[in-house]
Design a protein around this nucleic acid. Structure first.
Length: 481
RNA sequence: CGGGGCAUAGCGCAGUUUGGUAGCGUGCUUGGUUCGGGACCAAGAGGUCGCAGGUUCAAAUCCUGUUGCCCCGACCA
């Protein structure tokens, strides 16, 4: 299809080559995922955006339950006095904490803050609940909202209030805590790659980039269309740091009272931004089939003609047994308009049913990922659609992976690294000595950061690309959201 | 938090320079004709010009303040 013609179809969306940020905003608003709210940085997640979140939630929640985690709910408000014990950790969050000072017109005797994360309220509870090694491990997760009073906000990517899950576990040994941290990282990888079709690089954060109060932060990093990195989820091994802060102790087999070993881990509504910026194109969204709120949309064609509408609804009922399906029988829009509308919404498969199809006992199908159009015999429909959805998933993953590979470079020449980052080409794999000085220098010179030290090690040389001293790790660097 | 831009009908914009009856496109409503890649005709509805002060006979337009949104940087999931 010609450029010009393609433009006409999607006149509501700014092309991403022209202005990536604007493209993102257009998509997010015009596909009815969010709206702005009267409070800065707070977004309204509309049904189509929330439907996607619900699918993400259910895919992850299922996996967490299968691995023995239980959901609970802790309060939104935390008393100020709970901060005393964790001053260092809290300093990281202090500038973006929102305070509650009044109940009605009366000033509270003690200020409350709205959770930016819940370690502060959860760990003190654990210290009350845990007495013996027999109480461990404690594997709790909560789905909730948190508030971080951010200055610069963008829908999904950075909002003052966002939805997430935060897991908080407690273990009897360091080994178990480390094992848990890695197990969660693997679950997150499955969620991203097998459900959202987003390829990720698993790795460890540098000392500088890790969560305040963690011994070790594992991360998964994804690459967006513009070559920037999105931290898509983190899993922290907190060691005994928080247990010591909040006196979380248990009596072990050997009769000795010990501090527990804790972990925490989270994914957020930011993943929706990741889906948009990994898969979207100038026609709009491409929903990964396994979490798409609508997997199949049926468009009855020329449905004033006898039998068409009945057939379309009959089809819908049949498909609803296996898929999330919707029918668009609005009379006030033309077929062509609806094609573009549902493509912008990113629905993976569109089915057209018209008089000609009914006569041939078939439907016409169009894939959102390839825009291929083909006929499917009516009696094979459910089976074939299942296969096609899988194929769309695989194709989207493959395309995203190829895109990332294309924008991933290797360099050990600092001048070249600076030049490449100036053009924001994507990720660069470099060797690093491990010093914070080099990390700071890189950031000052290029505004890129060390995204992670990948779990898959590679040796690209002996010397740090920044200072030339002996290298310790291969790291992936990039500009981040 | 620094630097820049914007705010007028649901959405996109003109009008602001030079103060003087609130406009256009699209969408919306009603009726009709259409219907396999953004259809057409006709008639309608819709606005305290972001908010608060000020100047003036008169303010969308000039002045002051303020809020929100967007973009680029520093901090963060």
């Amino acid at each position: 299809m010609s450029k010009k013609k393609e433009q006409d179809f999607v006149k509501e969306v700014t092309p991403m080559e022209e202005d990536f940020a604007r493209w993102y905003t257009d998509i997010v608003l015009k596909t009815d995922m969010v709206d702005y709210s009267p409070v800065k940085g707070c977004m309204i997640i509309k049904p189509y955006g929330y439907g996607l979140w619900e699918e993400i939630v259910s895919a992850l929640d299922k996996r967490l339950k299968e691995t023995g985690h239980k959901n609970a709910y802790f309060p939104l408000l935390i008393p100020e006095s709970y901060l005393e014990k964790e001053k260092d950790h809290f300093e990281g969050f202090a500038p973006e904490v929102l305070w509650v000072t009044h109940g009605g017109s009366e000033e509270l005797t003690e200020r409350l803050f709205i959770r930016p994360t819940s370690e502060t309220i959860i760990l003190p509870m654990y210290s009350k609940w845990v007495q013996s090694y027999r109480d461990l491990p404690l594997l709790i997760n909560q789905w909730c909202n948190v508030v971080r009073w951010e200055k610069t906000t963008r829908p999904f990517l950075r909002t003052a209030e966002f939805l997430w899950q935060e897991g908080h576990t407690l273990h009897a040994t360091a080994e178990e805590a480390e094992e848990e941290t890695l197990k969660i990282l693997e679950i997150y990888r499955e969620l991203l790659e097998d459900e959202l079709a987003i390829p990720v690089i698993l790795g460890v954060k540098s000392e500088k980039e890790k969560f305040a109060g963690a011994d070790r932060t594992y991360t998964m990093e994804a690459m967006m269309h513009d070559g920037k990195a999105l931290q898509a989820g983190t899993s922290h091994n907190l060691g005994q740091n928080f247990a010591k802060m909040f006196d979380v102790m248990f009596l072990d087999r050997d009769g000795v009272r010990k501090h527990g070993w804790s972990t925490s881990w989270a994914i957020t509504t930011r993943l929706i931004g990741g889906i948009i910026m990994t898969h979207g194109d100038n026609r709009g969204l491409k929903m990964p089939p396994r979490v798409a709120p609508i997997q199949v949309v049926i468009l009855p064609i020329a449905f004033h003609k006898e039998g068409v509408l009945d057939k379309a609804y009959e089809l819908k009922n049949e498909l609803a047994k296996d898929f999330r399906v919707e029918i668009d029988s609005r009379d006030e829009y033309s077929a062509g308009w609806k094609f573009n509308y549902w493509e912008m919404k990113g629905v993976p498969i569109r089915l057209e049913v018209g008089p000609r199809d009914i006569a041939n006992n078939q439907v016409m199908a169009v894939r959102r990922d390839t825009l291929e159009k083909f006929a499917i015999p009516m009696d094979e429909l459910n089976e074939r659609l299942g296969e096609i959805l899988d194929d769309i998933h695989n194709n989207m993953f493959k395309t995203a992976l190829e895109d990332r590979e294309k924008k991933t470079f290797v360099s050990n020449d600092y001048e070249e690294i600076k030049d490449m980052m100036k053009e924001n080409k994507g990720f660069i794999k470099i060797m690093w000595c491990g010093s914070e000085e080099c990390e700071d220098k890189l950031k000052a010179d290029t505004s890129a950061t060390i995204r992670c030290i990948p779990l898959e090690k590679e040796k690209l040389g002996d010397k740090c690309a920044i200072c030339g001293k002996e290298a310790k790790h291969m790291v992936v660097i990039g500009k981040a959201y």
